[in-house]
Amino acid sequence: SEYETMLTEIMSMGYERERVVAALRASYNNPHRAVEYLLTGIPG
């Protein structure tokens, strides 16, 4: 799925699956924002 592709691409940058899933959830599946959250911390 498109979601799995995003997940895999972000994980390939060296992040753990659960952190990527949390970041995508926080960003409403916006991959650019999710990466930003992984770099700066997930808000909330």
Score class of each variant (00 low, 15 high):
1 S>A: 13
1 S>T: 14
1 S>C: 15
1 S>Q: 13
1 S>R: 11
1 S>L: 13
1 S>H: 11
1 S>E: 12
2 E>V: 11
2 E>P: 10
2 E>S: 12
2 E>G: 09
2 E>K: 11
3 Y>D: 04
3 Y>Q: 04
3 Y>V: 05
3 Y>R: 03
3 Y>L: 06
3 Y>I: 06
3 Y>S: 03
3 Y>H: 05
3 Y>P: 02
4 E>V: 09
4 E>G: 06
4 E>S: 07
4 E>R: 07
4 E>T: 08
4 E>D: 10
4 E>A: 08
4 E>C: 14
4 E>Y: 11
4 E>N: 09
5 T>G: 08
5 T>A: 14
5 T>I: 13
5 T>Q: 14
5 T>F: 11
5 T>N: 12
5 T>S: 12
5 T>Y: 11
5 T>H: 12
5 T>P: 08
5 T>M: 14
6 M>H: 06
6 M>D: 03
6 M>A: 06
6 M>G: 02
6 M>I: 10
6 M>N: 06
6 M>T: 05
6 M>W: 11
6 M>V: 07
7 L>T: 03
7 L>K: 02
7 L>E: 01
7 L>A: 02
7 L>W: 03
7 L>N: 00
7 L>Y: 03
7 L>G: 00
7 L>P: 00
8 T>W: 14
8 T>H: 14
8 T>R: 15
8 T>E: 13
8 T>L: 15
8 T>N: 14
8 T>K: 15
8 T>S: 13
8 T>M: 15
9 E>Q: 14
9 E>Y: 15
9 E>W: 15
9 E>T: 14
9 E>I: 14
9 E>P: 01
9 E>G: 08
9 E>A: 14
9 E>L: 15
9 E>K: 13
9 E>C: 15
10 I>F: 07
10 I>A: 02
10 I>K: 00
10 I>V: 03
10 I>N: 00
10 I>E: 00
10 I>G: 01
10 I>D: 00
10 I>M: 07
10 I>S: 00
10 I>P: 00
10 I>T: 01
11 M>H: 02
11 M>E: 04
11 M>W: 04
11 M>K: 01
11 M>T: 05
11 M>G: 02
11 M>P: 00
11 M>R: 02
11 M>N: 01
12 S>L: 12
12 S>G: 11
12 S>I: 07
12 S>A: 15
12 S>H: 08
12 S>D: 08
13 M>T: 02
13 M>V: 03
13 M>Q: 06
13 M>P: 00
13 M>H: 05
13 M>D: 02
13 M>R: 06
13 M>C: 07
13 M>A: 04
13 M>I: 05
13 M>F: 06
14 G>M: 03
14 G>V: 06
14 G>L: 05
14 G>C: 05
14 G>W: 06
14 G>R: 02
14 G>T: 01
14 G>K: 02
14 G>S: 02
14 G>D: 02
15 Y>D: 01
15 Y>F: 15
15 Y>G: 00
15 Y>T: 01
15 Y>R: 01
15 Y>W: 12
15 Y>N: 01
15 Y>H: 05
15 Y>S: 01
16 E>L: 07
16 E>V: 07
16 E>C: 12
16 E>K: 06
16 E>Y: 05
16 E>N: 08
16 E>T: 13
16 E>A: 10
16 E>D: 13
17 R>Y: 12
17 R>I: 06
17 R>G: 03
17 R>T: 03
17 R>V: 05
17 R>H: 05
17 R>S: 04
17 R>N: 03
17 R>F: 09
18 E>Q: 09
18 E>Y: 09
18 E>D: 12
18 E>A: 10
18 E>F: 08
18 E>H: 10
18 E>P: 06
18 E>N: 09
18 E>G: 08
18 E>C: 14
18 E>L: 07
18 E>S: 10
19 R>I: 12
19 R>L: 14
19 R>C: 12
19 R>P: 05
19 R>G: 04
19 R>K: 11
19 R>Y: 09
19 R>N: 08
19 R>W: 09
19 R>S: 11
19 R>F: 09
19 R>E: 13
20 V>H: 01
20 V>G: 02
20 V>S: 02
20 V>I: 05
20 V>D: 00
20 V>Q: 01
20 V>W: 03
20 V>M: 02
20 V>T: 03
20 V>A: 07
21 V>L: 10
21 V>W: 04
21 V>S: 05
21 V>R: 06
21 V>Q: 07
21 V>G: 02
21 V>N: 03
21 V>T: 06
21 V>M: 10
21 V>P: 00
21 V>I: 14
22 A>R: 08
22 A>D: 09
22 A>G: 04
22 A>P: 01
22 A>K: 07
22 A>Y: 05
22 A>V: 07
22 A>M: 08
22 A>T: 06
23 A>H: 01
23 A>P: 00
23 A>E: 01
23 A>G: 01
23 A>S: 03
23 A>D: 00
23 A>K: 01
23 A>Y: 02
24 L>N: 00
24 L>Q: 00
24 L>F: 03
24 L>K: 00
24 L>M: 08
24 L>V: 02
24 L>T: 00
24 L>E: 00
24 L>A: 01
24 L>P: 00
24 L>W: 02
25 R>H: 10
25 R>G: 06
25 R>Q: 10
25 R>S: 08
25 R>W: 07
25 R>L: 12
25 R>C: 11
26 A>W: 09
26 A>Q: 07
26 A>I: 10
26 A>D: 05
26 A>M: 10
26 A>T: 05
26 A>S: 05
26 A>F: 08
26 A>Y: 09
27 S>N: 07
27 S>W: 05
27 S>K: 02
27 S>V: 07
27 S>E: 03
27 S>M: 07
27 S>A: 15
27 S>I: 05
28 Y>N: 15
28 Y>M: 15
28 Y>K: 15
28 Y>H: 15
28 Y>A: 15
28 Y>D: 15
28 Y>L: 14
28 Y>I: 07
28 Y>W: 09
29 N>E: 05
29 N>F: 11
29 N>R: 04
29 N>H: 06
29 N>W: 14
29 N>S: 05
29 N>A: 05
29 N>D: 07
30 N>W: 04
30 N>T: 05
30 N>A: 04
30 N>M: 05
30 N>K: 04
30 N>R: 04
30 N>S: 06
30 N>P: 01
30 N>I: 07
30 N>H: 05
30 N>F: 03
30 N>Q: 07
30 N>G: 02
31 P>E: 05
31 P>R: 10
31 P>F: 15
31 P>L: 14
31 P>M: 14
31 P>Q: 09
31 P>Y: 15
32 H>E: 15
32 H>D: 14
32 H>M: 13
32 H>S: 14
32 H>Y: 12
32 H>W: 12
32 H>A: 15
32 H>G: 11
32 H>R: 12
33 R>G: 06
33 R>N: 07
33 R>A: 10
33 R>C: 11
33 R>Q: 13
33 R>P: 02
33 R>T: 11
33 R>I: 15
33 R>H: 08
33 R>V: 15
34 A>N: 01
34 A>C: 04
34 A>E: 01
34 A>K: 00
34 A>S: 02
34 A>M: 03
34 A>G: 02
34 A>P: 01
34 A>Q: 01
35 V>T: 05
35 V>N: 02
35 V>S: 03
35 V>P: 01
35 V>A: 05
35 V>Y: 07
36 E>V: 10
36 E>S: 06
36 E>K: 08
36 E>W: 13
36 E>M: 11
36 E>Q: 12
36 E>R: 08
36 E>N: 06
37 Y>E: 03
37 Y>A: 05
37 Y>K: 03
37 Y>L: 13
37 Y>N: 03
37 Y>D: 02
37 Y>F: 12
37 Y>S: 04
37 Y>P: 00
37 Y>T: 03
37 Y>H: 05
38 L>I: 04
38 L>Q: 00
38 L>G: 01
38 L>T: 01
38 L>A: 01
38 L>M: 04
38 L>K: 00
38 L>N: 00
38 L>P: 00
39 L>M: 14
39 L>S: 08
39 L>W: 05
39 L>H: 07
39 L>K: 14
39 L>E: 11
39 L>P: 00
39 L>G: 05
39 L>Y: 05
39 L>Q: 13
39 L>T: 09
39 L>F: 06
40 T>I: 10
40 T>Q: 13
40 T>R: 12
40 T>V: 09
40 T>N: 15
40 T>E: 10
40 T>P: 03
40 T>F: 14
40 T>A: 14
41 G>N: 10
41 G>Q: 11
41 G>L: 09
41 G>T: 10
41 G>E: 10
41 G>S: 10
41 G>A: 10
41 G>R: 08
41 G>H: 11
41 G>P: 06
42 I>E: 09
42 I>N: 09
42 I>A: 09
42 I>V: 09
42 I>Q: 09
42 I>C: 10
42 I>K: 08
42 I>M: 11
43 P>I: 11
43 P>S: 09
43 P>Y: 09
43 P>N: 09
43 P>R: 08
43 P>K: 08
43 P>W: 11
43 P>M: 11
43 P>T: 10
44 G>E: 13
44 G>R: 09
44 G>I: 13
44 G>D: 13
44 G>A: 13
44 G>S: 12
44 G>C: 13
44 G>K: 11
44 G>Q: 13
44 G>M: 12
44 G>H: 12
